[in-house]
Amino acid sequence: MLRDTRRDFLKQLSALGLTTALGGRAMDAFADEVLKVAVAYVSPIGDVGWTKQHDLARQAMEAAFPGKIKVVKVEGVSQAQDAERVFRDLANQGNKLVIGTSFSHMTPMMKVAQSMPKTTFELCSGIKTLKNMGAFEARYYEGTYLAGIVAGKMSKSNVLGFIGGFPVPDILGPANAFLLGARSVNPKASCKVIWLSSWYDPAKERDAANALISEGADVVMSMTDTPTTVQVGEEKGVWTVGYASDMSKYGPKKHLTSFVVDWSSEYINAARTVMDGTWKSSHRWDGLKTGVVKMSPYNPAIPKDVLAHVAQQEQAIIAGKLHPFAGPIRDQSGKERVAAGSTLPDDQLKGINWFVEGMQGNLPRS
């Protein structure tokens, strides 16, 4: 189905190419009035999840500039070869702002951006920029640290579970912070990790969630694009933490909270600056302080003293008084990575490739 979606879209692009070729000055005049924007989603748009949050940001962008923006969107662009072709076609069809939504889009977008200097590119989850390509990301680890505090308090087995798509820095950091938050209130806590090698695979995610639960995890969090883990937790009577969207409706009894990502400000600011000619390449990394990361309502079963502590820690993070990666921190092998009195610098956090002590799982060798 995803291939059909891309094929149909590319056919539409070809048709638009004929129109553009015939358009001449008419198309130039249209471009002056309406900004053409394209968004490539890494997975299908669902009811919740990563891609849903990007689509909500797309809607917010259109609402912010009524009649001034025309947006085309492509779903299921997950393979690098597809991404490069789609980005190139989108730029060739006159889209002045092209937005990618996955770390896996970075290399193909860079290739296209270098050959399309008049097009502005923005990439979510990217760690590299070019003169005409910016990047934006969220400090997910701030949200997972808070969720970890709750998990550490609610766990009876002292075993947490984490399911991730791929072991890239923007998943590794939050996974580590989940355990760091738990250990801040429960030093006995550990966390088992399973990688799916996919951003969207509900069947594989279900198997992973069941596996973690069978191994003793009584709080499980996932960073994938489905609510599957929350659904499994509800079925099995195990606490869960959602990701990207509020997933409480999929686990009304056992969903503890979700760390929500709101990209609206990123999309709106990108469109505004491209339209007014002030856009400049940058790498933005925002979190709780700016509202890019938010916590969804907490489960009423969580004790009030736990909620009070979480609220206090959230305000400390916002105020800059607490950093989830404050030392001392040792890695999985026992090596000190962050000394006491220090915090892990942003540049190292953005490229993190190691597990903190207490994480149980494998990482590919570099």
Rank of each mutant, 00 (worst) to 15 (best):
A271F: 03
P300C: 09
T343D: 13
N158G: 05
E84K: 05
Q59S: 14
Q114C: 12
S102M: 04
D346V: 13
G67I: 14
A319G: 09
S198F: 01
P44I: 03
Q360N: 09
R3G: 13
L146M: 02
M106E: 14
L180W: 02
S366Q: 12
G94E: 09
S198E: 01
I127K: 11
K254E: 15
K249T: 14
Y145I: 07
H283L: 15
F178N: 05
G291H: 02
G242T: 01
L160H: 04
E122T: 09
Q313N: 12
Q312L: 12
K96F: 08
G161W: 00
G164I: 00
P328S: 00
I268L: 07
Y298N: 11
M295A: 07
F87G: 00
L35R: 03
K253H: 13
K253L: 10
L344C: 03
G126Q: 08
E235A: 13
Q93M: 12
I171H: 03
T343E: 13
S155C: 05
M109P: 01
D32H: 12
K294M: 10
Q313D: 11
H255Q: 10
S78V: 11
N95Y: 09
P328V: 07
K254C: 12
A326P: 08
E266L: 04
N362V: 09
T144P: 06
N186W: 01
M133H: 08
R337N: 04
Y298W: 13
I317K: 04
A203Y: 02
L196K: 03
T273M: 02
T19K: 13
K249Q: 15
S296Y: 00
V168P: 04
K335G: 11
S265G: 10
N299Q: 09
F87L: 02
L256R: 01
M221P: 07
R25C: 12
K188V: 05
I69S: 10
I213N: 00
I99G: 01
T20D: 15
G173D: 08
Q231Y: 05
R272G: 07
K111F: 09
V219M: 03
R88M: 10
N269A: 11
I45L: 11
S333L: 15
S78D: 15
L196T: 04
N362K: 11
Q59D: 14
A211E: 12
Q332R: 09
L97M: 08
A319H: 10
D47F: 13
P44D: 01
G358F: 02
A151F: 03
R284V: 11
V193N: 03
G320H: 09
F162N: 06
G143R: 05
R330W: 10
T20M: 15
V293Q: 00
K11V: 15
M275C: 10
